[in-house]
Structure formats: C-alpha cells, structure tokens
C-alpha cells in the first residue's frame, strides 16, 4: 500500500474490501437459511419429505379450483392445496378469511393426520402481487389488453 496510493484511495479500497466480505457473508447466511427462513412448506416439500403425524407445520400453496367443500356441520371446510407438483387435502374448522377463494394462495397452520389429510388449526389468506379494480374482473387477458388499448387511445 506504500506504492504512492493516496490515503483517500487506501480508505476506499479498505471499505470496498470490507463491504464485499460483508455482502458475501450476508449472502451465504441467507443461502444457508433458505430452508429455515421459509414461512411454510409447499405440497412438493411434503411429498418429498413427509412430516411426522401430529408435528406442527405450516402448509402453503394454491387452493385447487373446484375443491372447496363445506361439510354438513356448516363450519368445516375441506379443500386441496396444490403447487403444480403435488397436492395435499386439508380440513379446517372455523371462520375462513375473506380472501380465501378457489385459485388463490393460502397458508394453513396445523399438522398431518394418519391418513394424509392436513388438519388446519388456522388459515391465513395469501394475497398475490396483482392489484386490479373490480370492473376488470372476469375479463380474459385478451379482453383486458383491448380495454387497456381503448383507455390509452
């Protein structure tokens, strides 16, 4: 460092080296935390490594279209959570959140029972990243594009 490097540049090099090391450490830690820091398991995880019966876990995924069925008691709902790779049947007794609909995301807290059904104690609805007003609901993508084109023109 005595090769005529100005103190200013010496400090810059030092700080940059320290920052690179820090970011590297942070990324490594985040990578190592990949499994632990996830908030829920997806059905594919459950299929790959089935959890023990009765072990409390969270299951997250999409509610399969046409799978929601209300039991005769009126407060128990049965549905299927899927992630495109695997599906898990879920049973929940209680009030469902307002955003709990078929085809949308859900996180269920509970445990697996002996015959492979997930018994949920708590349901959380997951909102996706799309924000859309009601008027545009039910339109296909092509119709939406048309509508958008008209608005722009």
């Amino acid at each position: 460092m005595s090769s005529g490097l100005k103190p200013k540049h010496q400090r810059l090099v030092l700080v940059v080296v320290a920052l690179v090391a820090l970011v590297g450490a942070g990324l490594l830690a985040a990578y190592a935390l990949r499994n632990q820091a996830s908030y829920f398991y997806v059905p594919a995880d459950i299929a790959a490594a089935p959890p023990q019966v009765g072990q409390p876990i969270r299951l997250g995924g999409m509610v399969e279209n046409g799978s929601i069925a209300t039991a005769a008691d009126g407060v128990t709902v049965q549905f299927v959570v899927q992630d495109g790779a695997a599906r898990v049947p879920v049973s929940y007794t209680g009030i469902v959140p307002a955003l709990f609909v078929e085809g949308s995301g859900v996180v269920a807290e509970g445990s697996m029972n002996a015959d492979g059904t997930f018994i949920a104690d708590n349901l959380l609805a997951k909102h996706d990243e799309n924000y859309m007003p009601r008027e545009l609901e039910g339109m296909s993508t092509a119709e939406l594009r048309e509508e958008l084109q008209e608005t722009v023109e």
Binding site: G26, S38, D128
Partner: peptide, 16 residues
C-alpha cells in the same frame, strides 16, 4: 438487499 429479496428467496406470507 435482504428485505428486498426476502419474498423471492423464501416462501413468505407477504406477496412477491
């Protein structure tokens, strides 16, 4: 960057 990537790296209840 951890806040920014948290919803991409890990399954989270918060939307991506």
């Amino acid at each position: 960057p951890i806040i920014n990537r948290s919803v991409v790296w890990w399954n989270s209840l918060h939307q991506p």
